[in-house]
């Protein structure tokens, strides 16, 4: 990982809370139903981060996908197993993702496209949904 300057970007908070962790960046939208709860590994065939674990990471992805039911249950199973991401950063909100994150208690924020694109895989991120800032370290 190359050294970066610390940069602070604004965001819109949805699910409250703050957390820090390494960024796992996905170019595909995320359906938490297709993540293995014991390991936090993405099991969706052909997904951009298939085979990688999102446990304890700050998940950075374009947005969520999946039915009104499976997204919440997927994230809940990860949280119960202790393999949920510590926070999620997206470019686009949808109601199902926002409700799932709020209910399960995973901080969720949205960044503007130009800020979102600054985030690289492996950056350490401090996400503060309440103050609406993301610090990239």
């Amino acid at each position: 990982m190359s050294a970066r300057e610390v940069s602070v970007i604004g965001c819109r908070g949805a699910a409250p809370g703050k957390a820090s962790g390494p960024a796992v960046v996905s170019t595909d939208a995320m359906c938490f139903y297709l993540v293995d709860p014991p390991t936090g590994t993405v099991i969706e065939a052909g997904h951009a981060i298939e085979g990688r674990s999102i446990a304890g990471a700050v998940l950075v992805c374009p947005g969520g996908k999946g039915s009104s039911v499976v997204q919440a249950d997927g994230l809940y199973q990860l949280a119960k197993a202790g393999t949920a991401p510590v926070a999620v950063v997206v470019a686009e909100f949808d109601t199902v993702l926002v409700a799932s994150a709020v209910v399960v208690g995973v901080p969720l924020v949205r960044c503007a496209p130009e800020d979102f694109e600054q985030i690289r895989d492996g950056d350490v991120l401090d996400v503060d949904s309440d103050q609406e800032v993301v610090t990239i370290r």
Binding site: S68, T95, V96, A99, V103
Partner: peptide, 11 residues
């Protein structure tokens, strides 16, 4: 209606 989740619709 928006594309509600099961939980948001219940709320």
């Amino acid at each position: 209606t928006n594309r509600e989740s099961a939980q948001s619709a219940l709320c």
